[in-house]
Amino acid sequence: MSEPPLRIRGLRKAYGSRLVLRSIDLDVAEHQVVCLIGGSGSGKSTLLRCVDLLDVVDDGTVHLGGTELTDPRLDASLARRQISIVFQAYNLFPHLSVLDNITLAPRQVHKVPRRQAEETARELLARLGLADKAQDYPDRLSGGQQQRAAIARALATDPQVLLFDEITSALDPELVGEVLDVVADLKERGLTILMATHEMGFARHAADRICFLEDGVIREQGSAEQVLTDPRHESTRRFLSRVLER
């Protein structure tokens, strides 16, 4: 298996006249955690949305394993079965209990029998410290619990690649830790993760690679240590000093 699970080449995306991504080249190898950093509006979320086919790319390709996701002949919902995304605002379904949120896709999309889907869901919830919340509705949970439930929902379909879109940005500071702990645990278990984040401290010890986005391209990428402590590019240095100053 030399093929990396996720291979992005020359990805370009504009919203109307506003060009967000100019040309993105990025590989995510198996069991790797890759962090996207960059200023607000630098295109981190757009990149993730393009990979999950929530937005149509304007040029370039995204390959998942051997399949080109950006092929217009491809059935998007079929391709998405291999990818899961977790959003900044959780986006749990408010009319479903936590357990039903998690079992929805396995049961409806993957046709897993109810009993088996619920068993898997309960295992996931136990692992994420939500064992006693299975029957609760999302509005009864704290932000951190909701986001962990959303991660459980993303994991329930056993995806090849996980996308995290600033999953801690909407959380109170004291709740950020519990969600990042979950991500660190997922890394230990060998999942393949591409995440946009503002948590530099977390990126430093969890990321195998950090990519700095600016002007619609990856300005600089390398190991967490190298990018964060010894950035090669002037603009990376400027960005880091601005973020780390606070």
Partner: peptide, 25 residues
């Protein structure tokens, strides 16, 4: 933030040519 957004809008992009793949698409 605003300055960055403006900078994005003015992104230099004259040398862009659609790829063969994109044209086919």
């Amino acid at each position: 933030t605003t300055a960055e957004l403006n900078q994005q809008a003015d992104m230099q992009d004259e040398q862009y040519r659609p790829s063969e793949r994109q044209l086919e698409r």
